[in-house]
């Protein structure tokens, strides 16, 4: 059997991620695929801590730990600097969902509109985990966070960032999951080969923030896809939408929700509402895919 995931480990041992961190897995696969000719622009997020203090730095490539709102703009600058020197380096903005969906979206939109030659990767754990689990624009409907207490959990669904990015008509957009490393690796390879702004959203469960068992990280990421809560797709030039992992027999969302403490307060009505929302979003997506 042909191994599709590169063997070389660039990310080292001794990182400071929590047990079962989806974000750590996402970085590991990303670096394997992109290789050492890569620099990272990382805003405030878990990974600004996970990388660890010298000499235990876990990524073995240059990291520019930038300001919260500046992942994309710093990456744009780094790339421009390399370009005027004639150097060909993968410049990657690596941000969490807070730094992408919320405070960083202006810089991301600016880069995408200019089509700056950067790869923007959001490892999405659906809240501000590094500062203590506050809600973000990516937090799903009805989820508990420390700023959406169970008395009034989040009353809006996760922001459809992928459609926002598609509206930029940028060369390449994809969603991926740490539970599907081959799919993730293929998308990273493709993104690497394309010039212009590329955006990748990697679904990355967070056991402490989701109040979930660390052993269930991959299981949860897989269930999110199998329940159609998070769909694996890619979009070329903002218009050609394609599902990369088709789910023949979708599971009910309860299978995914019941493994997470952040959904422990849900009533049956809440679960039905979430299920309905998943169906609604799926139909919207199917219209775009054209199936």
């Amino acid at each position: 059997m042909k191994l599709t995931i590169p063997e070389e480990e660039i990310m080292g041992h001794g990182h400071l991620a929590c047990q079962g961190c989806g974000g750590a897995l996402a970085m590991r696969y990303t670096l394997k695929t992109l290789g050492r000719n890569t620099v990272l622009s990382v805003p405030a997020c878990c990974w600004s801590v996970i990388d660890g203090p010298f000499p235990h730095s876990a990524v073995n490539i240059p990291v520019f730990h930038t300001a919260f709102e500046a992942a994309a703009s710093t990456a744009s600058g780094i790339k421009a600097g390399f370009e005027i020197q004639g150097k060909d380096v993968n410049v990657v903005a690596w941000a969490g969902d807070g730094g992408t969906y919320d405070i960083g979206i202006q810089a991301l939109s600016g880069a995408a509109e200019r089509n700056d030659d950067i790869l923007y990767i959001c490892y999405d754990n659906e809240a501000y985990m590094n500062t203590g689990v506050q809600r973000s624009g990516s937090t799903p409907l009805k989820a508990w966070t420390t700023t959406t207490p169970v008395a009034h959990p989040k009353d809006r669904p996760k922001k459809d960032l992928i459609s926002i990015m598609a509206a930029h008509r940028m060369p390449y957009i994809a969603t991926a999951s740490v539970a599907y490393p081959e799919d993730l690796t293929e998308k990273l390879e493709k993104a690497k080969s394309i010039k212009g702004t590329r955006f990748l959203l990697i679904f990355s469960p967070c056991p402490p923030g989701w109040r979930a068992d660390p052993k269930n990280t991959v299981k949860l990421a897989r269930l999110a896809v199998e329940t159609k809560v998070f769909n694996l797709l890619e979009i070329e030039n903002g218009l050609d939408w394609r599902i990369t992992k088709k789910i023949r027999k979708p599971k009910p969302v309860i299978e995914y929700l019941k493994l997470q403490g952040r959904f422990r307060h849900l009533t049956e009505d809440d679960v039905s509402l979430i299920q309905e929302n998943v169906e609604k979003e799926w139909n919207i997506l199917m219209n775009k895919v054209g199936e």
Binding site: I105, T131, G132, Q134, T147, T148, A151
Partner: peptide, 28 residues
Amino acid sequence: PITPSSEIAEKLSEVLPKYGGRFIQMED
């Protein structure tokens, strides 16, 4: 959210609605 002030927001997200107030977590 920002350390070390986040607990102020967290507490008020819980308490303000009880007093008929409003808590909003903004985008920046």
